[in-house]
Nucleic acid binder design. Structure first.
Lengths: 195, 195
DNA sequence: TTCTTCGTTGATTGACGAGTCAATAAAAGA
DNA sequence: TCTTTTATTGACTCGTCAATCAACGAAGAA
């Protein structure tokens, strides 16, 4: 059986299974055995490729962050105007890829993990910093010195909408959430114009 | 020893200890034994007065919600102008009483619990509904038909700021967070005025 | 005083789960 | 062919923790 080079395949399968299981059970108390089973391997193998449970979660977290980051970059690359750039950053967070029940449940899990795991906390802080940085840069041409404060508000809105959606899924495609944040953005622009 | 009427005292002590332990450990994996010890009683007693661990958490949740609700009502009662009413609702969430590391950690815990426990989910939904309702009513005189959308944005900002503060405490008295939300509120008012 | 009820303890049980380990099997290399 | 390396399993160990339970002490009732 053992064809060589299984490692990346297994790792990917386990990461995917981790997010899927968290979402499916709706619970964050997922056991290694459950994850392994969902990935079609034994629990021993999960420990073999990852050091332990926390490493599995961290890998899932990195994967989620990577997917999100790729979405942001793709959106930015396709954006023409500054306004497009802002929309790209906002919409990346609410894209069907990221704004799914499983992924949102995983995010919540990461916040919990970050309470006790230093690497997890670092990862989350990196994400938050990037999100704010992206928003600031995209908003700068539109709002000038007001960009920083506006970025904070928009970022908080995004996080808050994630939390709400995680509690009671009612916006499966994320369209409403994105529209809501962009409506808030328009307020920032109007306030600037009114000066 | 047993003086009569211990039940409410013990329940209160256990609820308080629950929130304190969650905050102190920084972890949401708090054991009944830890809570009981912090409350100065045995683990058996915790099971005696509450049915089980989940009931203890639910009681702590209800307590947190009650404290928060009382804060909102007190603020509203002291508010004169509509603007004061909005500020009261916002500031209640960031008052030193509610916006403490322990309480924020407890909130995160409740969100996790809500994923698996129906009563917990219901309680959180009640809270969210109340928050939005309070904001809508307070904003109505200021924004008219725009009040509902503005309330959603403000509520999302509040939740998002809680999440951020829970990750890396950097705003111990909540002053910055409250100011940030109120700055967002001013945008809503300016946009209305600019029509 | 005797009985009942409330308050309280801590040892115990039973379940569950993370992580280990010895064993097996298949490919690749010598 | 023989050996080494990689892949894989599942039983086992060890610890933890929620929940139970038998027992005890103290206050009030009869």
């Amino acid at each position: 059986m053992p064809k060589l080079g299984m490692e990346p395949i297994r790792r990917a399968a386990l990461v995917k299974a981790t997010i899927a299981e968290i979402g499916a059970r709706g619970s964050l108390d997922v056991t290694v055995a459950q994850i392994a089973k969902a990935a079609g391997v034994s629990s021993g193998l999960a420990h073999h490729y990852f050091g332990g449970k926390e490493d599995i979660f961290l890998a899932a977290m990195r994967h989620t962050l990577t997917v999100y980051g790729a979405g942001v970059r793709a959106g930015l690359a396709a954006a023409g105007t500054p306004r497009d750039r802002v929309e790209a950053v906002v919409k990346a967070g609410f894209s069907p890829e990221n704004f799914r029940a499983e992924v949102i449940a995983a995010w919540l899990n990461f916040y919990v993990l970050a309470k006790t795991s230093l690497p997890a906390r670092r990862l989350l802080i990196v994400y938050q910093s990037r999100l704010r940085s992206n928003l600031r840069h995209a908003l700068r041409p539109l709002l000038g010195p007001r960009a920083a404060a506006a970025a904070e508000r928009v970022a908080a809105q995004i996080d808050g909408l994630y939390l709400r959606e995680g509690l009671a899924a009612r916006d499966p495609d994320g369209a409403r959430a994105a529209a809501e944040v962009l409506a808030g953005l328009d307020l920032e622009l109007q306030a600037k114009a009114a000066r």
